[in-house]
Design a protein around this nucleic acid. Structure first.
Lengths: 343, 343
DNA sequence: TTGTACGCGTTATCAG
DNA sequence: CTGATAACGCGTACAA
């Protein structure tokens, strides 16, 4: 279907095209389509609506954002990639923003070393604010970019990483790891291990490892680590069998995330071992699904809802008063004890 | 809200602010920061750079997009949410776009019934093109929105759903399901079942189910279905045990996705059964990870790379010539036979 | 090599 | 209720 009889080229129709077709002014077109309750005569309104449909008109987002100064979009920086936890967080944030009439644009917070590039790409989006979730270098890169100045766009980071220069809702992962480790110790477990994928960079580094290591050592125990190849039942089984054959299978394992802990149950079963009895397991994140199952998984639950709500509040504070001081809060996770750590 | 006259408020610095501080013109500022190779005297260049840093200036994305007509952003509509497959597709697309100097903004393609709302939210972003992946109602809603006109913004859908009115790279899921089913039959399996989560809407509907059902019936077999509660080992085990106790355990199961198939292996083991021997398994999507493992999973592999590359090419075609005809291609998946379907 | 001037498509203000 | 008109911040032809 060819475009209407106007002399326009094949480019996108503008407000004025609609106005001409509806025999009215551009202003009126905007008013009708704005959604807000203006006083418009029914005839004009319907003419505008008809013309807009006919031309397939939709407002130019860039122009709207430029003129109004707001886009109704929040940039959400996170690592795309397979994780139940991330998925839940994104979902929760989406829900909060949606309730506020805001939309969420997710941009990939790549890997650390190309973050500078990544950040400039993400900046190509007109957003009213930015929330960075578990984005390692986000806060740092942002600091770098603004050279110590307050950011010219509301920015909040949340999750595992943050920069002292900006608002954040952090999670005290180390405290979580300590809880899990203390839990093992109080249960009388003596051969503790911390398990993470070998290539995650989290095996012998980061707050989870540190919390585990410190508490284990304080208790006079050796803080062993287990590197796995990937997040699969088979990979776990392989690692466990190796340890078993060398007589080094732990009696308690703290996992870097719940997905691994959940897969460990069938892995142990294949070896004739019982999670909770032979080996105590504690996962991390408090992912949905850990509670269901033949062996419900003990886990260190992240306060996802609180984190997201707070992050949004911190953003709102910056809207209300651009020169308000940074707001920073460190949340503690919560240990949830279930069958997998021994009855 | 006081609009700054000559005296700036606390709002974001503009090009002119930088120009003033660097004692030059806005044009020069743009030229220096544009990245392109303009002839600028070293002194002026460094003054501009310094001033920009000092003010924490970054160009207004909306203004840039409005003026240039391009944002360098591609809107990627997909369902956020836990799935290895989706994750891989997003990653692949991100890579392709990144290589082209483009950025990707992911917006959640919600649930079907609120898609109209969802689409208008996504439209608030100035993007140079839109790729919709496995977004059920995207194509339909787009059609609705444009009332049969060519979309005023390059649009391509890819994956399981599409609209005949627009460019798409579809995947023939039904053909994939047929391959899997034929495979079972050729192996001599007679008690076939198709397994999906009960709440996915895919259990007795959609091309996967249809392909399975048709081929099973053509072979004179009863096309049974298995509804599971969730994607966990435990949930699968429960379903299997129920079937077993009523003497209805199939000897071949076709899964709606690989994640479920992978979890089925340990679930069967818990029951003393062996995947591949007692029950043949075929997954769906060809997810990374299916090939590794004690029992490598047979799967119907989606041509992720080809799909993404083609979708991008179709987008490019619309940039090169906005009135180019729609391009549509249906890709066939590929059956990959591994141990899980019986040696 | 640098600067001036215009307009991208929209929203907001202010007259009628 | 409706319609001119002035920005919003930037890219770029054109002039100097």
């Amino acid at each position: 279907m060819p475009r209407g009889r106007s002399e326009r080229t094949e480019s996108r129709p503008t407000r004025e095209d609609v106005a001409k077709l509806a025999k009215t002014s551009g202003t009126t077109v905007s008013r009708v389509l704005s959604g807000r309750e203006f006083q418009i005569s029914p005839e004009v309104r319907s003419r505008v609506l008809k013309a807009a449909r006919e031309l397939g008109y939709s407002p130019n987002a860039a122009a709207t954002a430029l003129r109004s100064g707001r886009s109704g979009m929040i940039g959400f920086w996170m690592c795309l990639g397979y994780s139940r936890y991330r998925s839940q967080v994104a979902d929760q944030m989406q829900r909060i923003l949606s309730d506020e009439g805001l939309a969420m644009a997710v941009t990939d917070a790549d890997h650390e070393y190309i973050f500078e590039h990544s950040i400039s790409r993400a900046m190509r989006l007109p957003v009213d604010g930015i929330i960075a979730f578990d984005a390692f270098a986000a806060a740092g890169a942002f600091t770098e970019l603004h050279n110590g100045l307050p950011p010219n766009i509301p920015f909040v980071s949340m999750g595992a990483y943050w920069s002292p220069a900006y608002s954040y809702v952090g999670i005290d992962l180390k405290a979580g790891a300590e809880m899990a480790t203390d839990h093992f110790i109080s249960l009388g477990r003596r051969r503790l291990a911390y398990l993470a994928p070998w290539n995650s960079g989290l095996l012998t580094d980061g707050p989870r490892y540190e919390g585990f290591r410190d508490r284990a050592m304080e208790a006079g125990l050796e803080p062993k680590t287990i590197a796995v190849e990937s997040s699969t039942v088979d990979s776990l089984e392989e690692s466990f069998r190796e340890l078993q054959s060398s007589g080094n299978l732990p009696d308690a394992i703290f996992f870097v995330n719940d997905d691994l802990a959940m897969d460990a149950v069938p892995a142990l079963e294949r070896m004739g071992l019982c999670a909770g009895r032979d080996v105590a397991l504690v996962g991390f994140n408090g992912t949905e699904g850990t509670e269901r199952g033949g062996v419900p998984i003990s886990t260190v639950r992240q306060p996802i809802e609180e984190m997201c709500h707070l992050a949004f509040q911190f953003l709102q504070a910056q809207w209300d008063d651009p020169k308000s001081p940074v707001q920073q809060k460190l949340l503690k996770p919560e240990l949830i004890v279930r069958a997998s750590s021994g009855v």
